[in-house]
Amino acid sequence: MFAVLIDQFWSLTIAGIALGFIYVLISLGYTMVYGVLRMINFANSEIFMWGTFGTVITSRDIFHYTQTSEPAKGAKLVLVLVTSLLMSMLVAGLTAVFVEFVAYRRLRMKGTNRLATLISAIGISIALQEIMRLLTNSRPVGAPRVLEKIILTEVWGANIRLDTVITIIAAALIFFVLERFIKLSRMGKAIRAVSQNEDAAKLMGVNLNRVITTTFLVGGLATGAAGFFYITVFEYTKFNIGFTMGMAAFTAAVLGGIGNIRGAFFGGLSLGLLEVYASAVLGTQWKAVTVFIVLVLVLLFKPNGLFGEAVQTTRA
């Protein structure tokens, strides 16, 4: 049972870290919105799904790569990858802003109950998923292979592939840029102020609407980047991939303490590793069960997540 785990420990670890970083970025979308609005952004999984299509469109329709064409090399490769990443982020960011505008804003201004907003978010997420289903005729979409998956080196018997390395490094970089943005910039300060105390922040002259829109935008950008990395590693997308990934990322956010950005980092990584190890030991089909059981146990013994809710004191 554990033979596979011990045998392939390092390659599993690397795959887990790569998956973990994708989760980290998606869970940022959940955690940031939760920090500011105290609400689960139910549409984030669909924002992620739209983000993956950003990459597909760029490589397939802008640069005309196909399933069978040669992978790109050199400067062209960098150009295509960077454009795809930016396109994914742009698509997801705009979708997130759209979601905020359509599903959240009016209800927030009215100050209505949280459930109404939740259902409204569920509605928009159904709509987003359906639009994509109609556009793709319910078919899975294979992404053209732009990046050749070269094996760079071998460490302790594990193959280090180029796409995993790029994913880990770039995702970590994006995470830290966003984290610095929230820590240091003026807008980031405003976001944190609102997440601590909305009324006080408003009295201090913070433009609430702008802050909330920015929060959605930043969360969407991170989620979109995750979409790009997902395509780079798995080279495939479909209108309904959002659900599984979104669920896992949300679990990661709760695991680390939702509303807490560092928590999202550790939650995402531990969830990625946990999933990969669990599927090695118990078989892939039990991976999600393990994840949920761990989540329930964590919540029972540390109800605010492993690293605590950053905004816990303001919760009623």
Partner: peptide
């Protein structure tokens, strides 16, 4: 289903 989702959003709003 698209109509369904839209109806949810509109009615809740």
């Amino acid at each position: 289903l698209l109509v369904f989702g839209t109806v949810l959003v509109v009615v809740m709003n």
